[in-house]
Amino acid sequence: MCEVACSAGHFGAVSPALARIRVAKMDETGIDLAIACFSCKEKPCLECPTEALSVGDRGEIVLDSDYCDACGLCAEACPVGAVGFYEEPLFCDLCDGDPNCVKVCPSEALTYETGKEVSLAPFLEVGGTPSQRRVHFAGVMAEPLRKGWAEGRRVDS
């Protein structure tokens, strides 16, 4: 629902390819993780050859389309695959501080938090495509959850 709300909210059309939040789904381990820009400490996406990217007031990455030549390096640079690309890079703009994805999430898995610095340093060297990096990140983040399952933790415990 977060992908749909993001895509529909920004484009009036629906496809996860248009969304700035993407769900990494691993059906064989039961893991789903929605991933959007964390406004991470490292911000490797900012290494933009045409200097089309800057950081906005809320920490969001701002794209100046006039300067962007759609090379896609920013999407390739994100260690967790959180930068979309559909004709041009797609950065989460936080919906002016009231993100659509958070509003529609039925399981309240998404929150909008400010003032929290996230480091993605352990993931900077992860290779592969953006979607492979999303899955890698989700797999690492889910390790404690899966360990809990193996130890007998259940959804209500």
């Binding site: 039961g30 039925p106 399981s107 959850l145 193996a150 959804v155 209500d156």
Partner: peptide, 24 residues
Amino acid sequence: LRRDHVVKGKACYNCNVYCSRYNY
């Protein structure tokens, strides 16, 4: 079932009921 074997809810595309469940 929920007490002993369900570890997580699962959803289909764009559904707020997410009525499926993952078992372990």
